[in-house]
Design a protein around this nucleic acid. Structure first.
Lengths: 242, 242
DNA sequence: GATGGCCTGATTGTCGGACAATCATACGAT
DNA sequence: ATCGTATGATTGTCCGACAATCAGGCCATC
């Protein structure tokens, strides 16, 4: 029988400092918007050098737990912004060689239920936002970039209509990853713009009438249409996104 | 008419350095596992001080683009690990006061389709893993912590069975957020363990037989059961997760 | 030949101090 | 009341330093 030892792990100071501050934020002992002490003061309190504190701050900053309000020096506690987190997720997925198919498949599973829920839970304000997004896509779709952006924005409005942050957060990286392929597709498929606009109107209408079933169905068609667009544009589905 | 100027933004050096290195990694110019030059060398190349380089490295490290293999000094390029990214997501959601209901609702929408896809795409190896997870839950469910962990692990196995990284990544934060409530529930509801075990067996069976419809249905029931468990255990659904 | 000890150089983690640029604030002049 | 200025605080960046650890080579011992 052999003697076994656990691996001893020595955590560097900057990570300990970051962990302590992060814990304070997670436990809501430090509230959002609260200003952190100056670096020298933190260094004094933790009993480490300012350089060490700064490295810890960089870690927390990139994690979105701290931010600096524009034109201010002191760091303030903040909740990670959805967009920023989503960006990290899509970056990670891209590096893991996610394919167009995987993104599309996830869309087919995620978006229809979201439309259904939005039909139930949307407020008048949500509906206004959705209508505005639909209008914007119909009117400003000449430039490919704008068209793509507005198409994604429509999905986001549906997401907000669900009043479910978890679903909204799950959707966000999908849209990031969808964009590049959507750009190619809209460019190459002449009828793409009109078909997207038509689908958006149907979905908007269904959500407006609180017709959950119709919202789900039209959203399902809308997403299925993307796949046809891929085929038509000659985008290989097993090709990685980035 | 007033003259307007765009806000000028001065990006600190450590962020520029981080951005340049990140771009190299994203563009796959730097490949996974490749070792980064030493800090002094990087400082020389970028023409900045080593402290500045170090702050940039902390940013990339916490983003998962760099890591240090245990027992090594040089940093190596790495792809962000799914678990780490998911942890960031669930942390963000928790800070945004996500409720049990939102998590549960997302589960109801996400898991059944995943079971359906897994029934189609699972390999024999996936099935083995799923069966093992099912067995582990059935056998080691005395300690609440183990039971919770194994229940989550079963979901993860289903996720892997979909062979869709996007869905897998969407699922992961849900499981993180589910755990605390599941812990309370399993503790307070006597029949929870047996019901979960039964549902797992049904799902496993359906996926094994490639019966997509049954897999979806049983997964839907499985998740719906959680809600009953919440009610039974007296967990308020509109209560925030953390 | 394999093992272990020892030396040397490279690298990181941490420290202390320094300084210019910017921010916050109060004070005073117009 | 508005503007300019002085003053102190804070950050971004730099320099230099040192202990601890890692990597690799050399050598003695078994």
């Amino acid at each position: 029988m052999s003697v076994e030892f656990d691996q001893i792990l020595l955590v560097p100071g900057y990570r300990k400092v970051a962990a302590v501050i992060a814990e304070r934020i997670l436990s809501r002992e430090l509230r959002e918007g609260e200003r952190l002490p100056a670096e020298t003061e933190l260094a004094r309190q933790f009993g480490v050098n300012r350089s060490t504190v700064r490295e810890a701050l960089r870690e927390l900053e990139s994690g979105g737990l701290l931010e600096r309000r524009p034109g201010s020096k002191l760091m303030t506690v903040s909740r990670p912004q959805r967009r920023a987190v989503a960006k990290d997720v899509s970056r990670a997925l891209a590096l893991h060689d996610v394919t167009f198919f995987e993104v599309w498949e996830a869309l087919t599973q995620l978006e229809p239920p979201m439309a259904e829920i939005a039909a139930h839970k949307r407020t008048p304000a949500d509906l206004d936002a959705l209508a505005a997004a639909c209008r914007r896509f119909a009117q400003e779709n000449a430039e490919t970039d704008k068209a793509v952006h507005h198409a994604a924005e429509f999905f986001r409005c549906v997401g907000r209509g669900t009043h479910n942050q978890v679903l909204g957060m799950a959707q966000e990286p999908l849209l990031d990853l969808l964009e590049p392929s959507l750009r190619v597709m809209i460019d190459k498929v002449p009828q793409a713009r009109s078909r997207i606009a038509a689908a958006q109107r149907r979905i908007l209408d269904a959500i407006g009438k609180r017709d959950a079933e119709a919202a789900r169905d039209w959203m399902a068609r809308h997403v299925r249409d993307f796949r046809k667009g891929y085929d038509f544009a000659g985008i290989a589905l097993d090709c990685r996104v980035a």
